[in-house]
Design a protein around this nucleic acid. Structure first.
Lengths: 158, 158
DNA sequence: TATTGTTATACTCTATAACTATA
DNA sequence: TATAGTTATAGAGTATAACAATA
């Protein structure tokens, strides 16, 4: 019952499984009119009311013109509002609307569903062990829980 | 010392870590003039000498026009040869060149290096446990070890 | 002059559709 | 008429550079 495991494959399988997980998440948030990228921005804005686009760009590790597109999408979906900052009219203050806050709840549900879908094949103890190891690795590699790398990190990006 | 873990984050961290792993692999094979996509094609061709482009497309889950680009790249890099099949001149037989076989060795080395880089923070027992869990999940979700999903699986793809 | 946000433009990846050649 | 491969074209995503408004 021991498939002769080739240990050098773990990194490869991790890439694949990560892509699978990202695709699943994308599916789950699509009905809400979100993508992994806009979902990531929404989460940051939820915790940082009034953030400027520049500041959001820095958090996302994205370029300002990219943020325009992201915020356009969120604004068109009615989830985020842009208002000029009266103190410095160059800035836009970004805030979640009521619909945005509701969408945020949906994101949490999507994340839980994604988890259940991905980790379903493991029993509770194994899930716990897997979660702990993934968490350790993410921390060790400085992975920022805000930035959705799953999509948006193509070879020619950066 | 127990960071209160939010279990619904595991899927998210898995996406991120997978993308990280894919990006690392891309870096490692880039000096050899390969990308994750061409590397995946090369591996399939190594095990299936004389494969046609159509058959390769099926293995990759890609469309024939995509395979043209991939094989063009491999041929231009001198790693793969196209020869018309004398039995049915519509087909191209795809075969690795000597340089292609050498590149394949390099891919194995890259995979090992990627593994070491990713799993470095874990001790040997943990690596083993992680490898076993990842392997189980990959199998359970029907992940094909040939197809490089890490790149090339964009929302509008398919 | 420097900064924020926007627009214009370009590039990569990948798909669909039209086409060529072989069968 | 059907199939293998190619070319032409289009679309998504994201970057760089030029620009307008504001400071």
């Amino acid at each position: 019952m021991d498939t002769p495991r080739r240990p050098e494959r773990t990194g490869f399988l991790l890439s694949q499984l990560g892509s699978f997980a990202a695709a699943r998440f994308a599916e789950l948030v699509k009905p809400a009119g979100l993508t992994p990228a806009t979902a990531g921005a929404l989460r940051i804005l939820a915790r940082n009311p009034g953030l400027s686009q520049r500041a959001l760009a820095d958090r996302l590790g994205a370029v300002p013109s990219r943020v325009v597109v992201l915020v356009d999408a969120l604004e068109n979906a009615g989830l985020v509002s842009r208002t000029r900052d009266p103190d410095d009219r160059r800035h836009h203050r970004l805030d979640l609307t009521d619909a945005g806050r509701a969408a945020l709840q949906g994101l949490r549900a999507a994340a839980e569903q994604q988890n259940a879908d991905i980790l379903g094949p493991l029993d509770p103890a194994e899930r716990e062990a897997f979660a702990a190891l993934i968490s350790r690795l993410a921390t060790a590699h400085g992975i920022d829980p805000d930035v959705h790398r799953g999509f948006g990190d193509h070879p020619h990006a950066r």
